[in-house]
Design a protein around this nucleic acid. Structure first.
Lengths: 115, 115
DNA sequence: TAAGTAACTAACAAAAATGTAAGTATGCCA
DNA sequence: TGGCATACTTACATTTTTGTTAGTTACTTA
């Protein structure tokens, strides 16, 4: 597991790289929602209600830059914007699902009930 | 995916909970190393050389508190301490492996060569 | 007698992530 | 004419995570 550098940032293993791309508080929740349909900004906002405008916007922007999602702007007033998942985004769904299931197992293990 | 609270901390989904337990820069590297043998503190130090004493110590302590690893102190001078993985720790290896493989795929996708 | 060793801990500093509040554009509707 | 709606951005504050430096214990070896 040799170190490597990408975009002026040093990584020590593949997990660090993966987390740098889809980690953080909001990226996986976004990808998870986009996995089977397009979502508007305001829909994501309502659904991930603990995310502020700023954080949601920031996460979306980085996911676009990294090629996990795309953005379509409709020239209407008020504006309409739709976010769509890409091939690369689709490929991320499997680990998000695995992580989610592991999280559920851990919750059970720690005695957390999910109704 | 309802919110829940554990140890005075609010979580919004199972992934967040999983990451709170095995996330951060050093926990997965530690678990990964302990998966098939015991390691001494100094061995981990040499192997995860970018971790400072403090961070390594902190990560180990939290993994112990959360039941992923155990610690055995030998009454020798200079001291000898061995860290060992638990059942709960063993169960985490599968996602670490999955995340690692996903990371390798992503690296390839982003044009990063690993020799 | 002094330096070396393993496995730490404490105090403090810096960097990164997240949060909060306010402001922007454009046109529609009352 | 004023307020409303959507999808943002900017500036700033706070919190969390990570890093740095120095010190501790207690025995062994030079």
């Amino acid at each position: 597991m040799p170190d490597f550098v990408k975009d002026n940032h040093q990584f020590h293993n593949p997990v660090e790289f993966a987390i740098s791309k889809i980690g953080g508080t909001y990226k996986m929740p976004i990808l998870w929602r986009l996995k089977d349909k397009k979502w508007r900004f305001s829909e994501l906002q309502r659904s991930i209600s603990h995310a502020s405008d700023r954080m949601l916007s920031k996460a979306l922007k980085e996911l676009i830059e990294d090629g996990f999602i795309t953005k379509e702007i409709f020239p209407e007033v008020p504006p309409r914007v739709e976010y769509n998942i890409t091939e690369r985004g689709i490929k991320s769904i499997a680990i998000i699902d695995a992580l989610r299931n592991y999280g559920l197992d851990l919750m059970k293990d720690f005695g957390i009930e999910n109704h």
